[in-house]
Design a protein around this nucleic acid. Structure first.
Lengths: 133, 133
DNA sequence: TATTGTTATACTCTATAACTATA
DNA sequence: TATAGTTATAGAGTATAACAATA
């Protein structure tokens, strides 16, 4: 089962990258954009927890996204050590296309699968995600 | 659903690395050892298809595994361009501990999950893995 | 000519530790 | 002194292109 999860993760990531075509985003970059998509600013640490990366890693991801004009950094009011990250208008457009591509990919891949199987998969994936690190 | 797959993949990989403790293997290295575990030699290309990596990437993975004495390379009889890769005795022991750790992890994580959910997950993960790249 | 594997190059992700500027 | 973020360093995965040996 765990091996099947790895295979599915790999295949869907690859398929998503192909569908996005010219957008050229790495999985971590998509993940970061997806987490910021609701419009709420996050600190670097919060984003790190959300995407499962260390602050030092998040810094690198944000450097690239900022260079491409997809996110902006600003000192957080109230605590000048913190940085608030949020999407730029271009970042919001990109996040939206990722979301659409994901939905389409999922719809396409699971077209012939019945609802009971999907419910079961939710349960199993939830249990696996909760496993103690 | 696809996001749940990514989260589960990430969590299980991390848990597996923790359980293996001192063994210190990257996911790709585990994957390569797992594929060779049946004792049948593979060419670099075959292994690349099995682990989802390009030959150039496989070369690097094998370099590290060979340096640590876990796999051996030999010219393939009949086609001197090809290389046959197989596990050394130490590699077989390592592959076995990976297998055991995987089984235990899975058993532990899915202890409270009923069989219908597991069957459903198999179906869904199979469908996702088949999605066109 | 085509294939097999390797090497070379460049970029990303990751972890760790040291550093800065704030608190 | 503790925390937030960055920088520095090193290792690993990835893709692409060029290459040598062999078919």
């Amino acid at each position: 089962m765990i091996l099947a999860v790895q295979r599915a993760a790999h295949a869907t990531l690859h398929a998503l990258a192909t569908r996005l075509g010219t957008v050229e985003l790495t999985p971590s970059e998509m993940n970061a954009l997806g987490n910021l998509a609701d419009g709420r600013p996050r600190t670097v640490s919060e984003l790190g927890v959300a995407v499962g990366a260390k602050p030092a890693t998040v810094t690198g991801i944000l450097d690239r996204l900022e260079r491409r004009g997809l996110v902006s950094r600003a000192v957080r009011p109230g605590d000048r050590r913190s940085v608030h990250v949020e999407l730029t208008p271009a970042g919001r457009r990109t996040a939206r296309s990722i979301h659409v591509a994901l939905e389409e990919l999922e719809k396409h891949a699971l077209a012939g699968v019945d609802q009971h199987a999907i419910d079961g998969a939710q349960t199993v994936l939830g249990a696996l995600a909760e496993v103690a690190p």
